[in-house]
């Protein structure tokens, strides 16, 4: 087969080469070299020490993805059954936060979750903290929310939920209404219609939603640093430290990045295999 590139694709190819392929090659070279530029496996050997960080990252990303799915699917489903004008407004509201930089949004979560932040002040005013102290006999001044894994998961869910809702919604809303009527006609009650028709046909949306939430969650570093208070070290933070922090070690950083990328790619391949035959997967 002749695979001649049109001349209009040249800028794109050059761009991809410089900003996608070259960095990956550089990363691979770094990952397999020591400080003097010689070949080594040491970087990967060192990684064993960070197993807990890997585990924590994947655990939090999985939890965040699961929460997004549990919240996002019902939202998408109910939304798709509402009137057209309501759907439009709801879509804008769901997208609206995404038009703001996510660092800003995460900062605002800091002010909400801080020990003397908005939420704790509210609890104080409402007497919830006093009530809690009365019941448990403790003497806390605030609920510590910031700096916990829960806060990190909350940050991920808040930031990435739209990426779960949008693909699922767009698949469900495009479902042919006559398929649902056909299922009812063939004896299915609404639960069966959902289980045997709507759910299987919305799987492509679910798969791409999971991908779009899980991948950024597993590599996030700003959220964990701001909401995890630096105590909950995640992969993203670990990599960042190798390049910018006191633990300067770009070779190790590259190796960790490479492994993370490999794991993510494997996860995605497995997922795509699982969803094979559902070509209509919606990629945004």
């Amino acid at each position: 087969m002749k695979n001649k590139l049109s001349r209009f694709s040249v800028p794109y190819v050059v761009w991809m080469g410089i900003f996608v392929v070259a960095p990956i090659i550089i990363m691979v070279i770094y990952a397999f070299s020591n400080g003097e530029g010689g070949f080594t496996w040491d970087n990967f050997a060192q990684m064993g020490a960070y197993g807990s960080v890997f585990l924590r990252s994947f655990k939090l990303a999985l939890i965040a993805t699961a929460v997004c799915l549990l919240v996002g699917y019902p939202v998408s489903y109910w939304l798709s059954r509402e009137g057209a004008s309501f759907q439009r407004i709801a879509m804008v509201l769901i997208m609206l936060p995404m038009w703001m930089n996510f660092l800003l949004r995460t900062y605002s979560w800091m002010t909400i979750l801080e020990n003397n932040g908005l939420l704790n002040q509210l609890f104080h005013k409402l007497g919830i903290i006093a009530l809690y102290n009365n019941i448990t006999g403790s003497e806390i001044e605030y609920f510590s929310m910031i700096g916990t894994q829960g806060a990190v998961v909350l940050g991920m869910v808040y930031n990435y939920l739209p990426f779960m809702i949008l693909p699922i919604y767009s698949v469900i809303v495009k479902l042919d209404g006559s398929l649902i009527e056909a299922a009812r006609d063939l004896g299915a009650d609404s639960v069966t219609v959902f289980r045997k028709v709507i759910l299987p046909l919305s799987l492509p949306g679910v798969l791409s939603g999971i991908t779009m939430v899980f991948v950024p969650s597993v590599s996030t570093f700003a959220i964990s640093r701001m909401l995890g208070g630096g105590t909950e070290l995640l992969l993203g933070d670990l990599i960042e430290r190798q390049f910018l922090g006191g633990a300067y070690n770009p070779q190790l950083g590259a190796a960790i990045s490479l492994v993370m990328m490999a794991v993510v790619v494997i996860c995605m391949l497995v997922m795509n295999r699982f969803g094979e035959g559902e070509e209509q997967a919606v990629m945004l």
Binding site: S178, A182, A183
Partner: peptide, 12 residues
């Protein structure tokens, strides 16, 4: 039972 205009067969 109904035969729908565009058949409405289940693609999955």
């Amino acid at each position: 039972n109904t035969v729908f205009q565009k058949y409405a067969l289940f693609p999955h």
